[in-house]
Design a binder for these strands. Structure first.
Lengths: 120, 120
DNA sequence: CAAATATACATAAGATTCTTATACATAATA
DNA sequence: TATTATGTATAAGAATCTTATGTATATTTG
């Protein structure tokens, strides 16, 4: 049973951003299950970001343990799905995380695209 | 000797971006020493990103070990400074890292600012 | 002048996040 | 019938960072 996932490894830059991505997608879509999240991210990034199960499932479990997500199990086509959605706390926290992400992106752009030196 | 660094912890989002930041600053400024890098980053981000020594110095040593940085020791005011600059390999690699950063930022923005749903 | 702060480098222990490799199971496709 | 797709899960190890130190000199402040 080979896993031919051809796991291209993601840039180190994505490290630390998974929780924010999950929460934003749940805010956007109401409820989603793990596999669906991986596919959605792959689609949105045109295949550039591939979330691995080894990263995703522990992250979901942790967010649930922290009270930011609620889970609801469904059986579809005889296969199990665990649907996650934001709790009220999770919704508030999502606002903070997205604000942090905006700051982060702004700061990184300042570092990488410094305002051009004036020449006389 | 209290360490009143009031180390506010940086968002997890910055995890993985330190190498890119260092390399970009060195590309920009030719040569810099560690402490100078921390101050420069703090200034550019208006105090929002504070690089700790515990993260910075190991990162510099690793980049040097990988052949991306060269080091040159100077003594200024009886205090030691270790100036780092990009090697030729480091300069080429910086181009790649910055390209990765652009992709990363673009992908994060796609995830967070999805094109608005059309309403009819 | 003594104490605190700023400058300057360094490392070790532990936390967190992720990759890689598995494991199990069903459905659909080649 | 073998592979791929769908679906969840965890364990070992890698990589990166935080926190807490340690050492040392220069400058500023009370």
């Amino acid at each position: 049973m080979p896993r031919n996932d051809k796991k291209m490894k993601n840039s180190q830059l994505y490290k630390g951003s998974l929780n924010t991505i999950i929460m934003k997608l749940l805010e956007e879509n109401g409820k989603m299950y793990g596999y669906e999240i991986t596919q959605k991210v792959k689609a949105i990034t045109q295949g550039e970001l591939n979330i691995t199960e080894g990263a995703l499932y522990p992250a979901l479990h942790k967010l649930e343990a922290e009270g930011l997500l609620d889970v609801e199990i469904e059986k579809v086509d005889n296969r199990m799905r665990k649907y996650y959605k934001l709790t009220e706390t999770g919704q508030k926290e999502t606002v903070n995380r997205l604000s942090e992400l905006e700051d982060f992106i702004r700061n990184m752009q300042s570092l990488v695209n410094p305002s051009p030196k004036l020449e006389f």
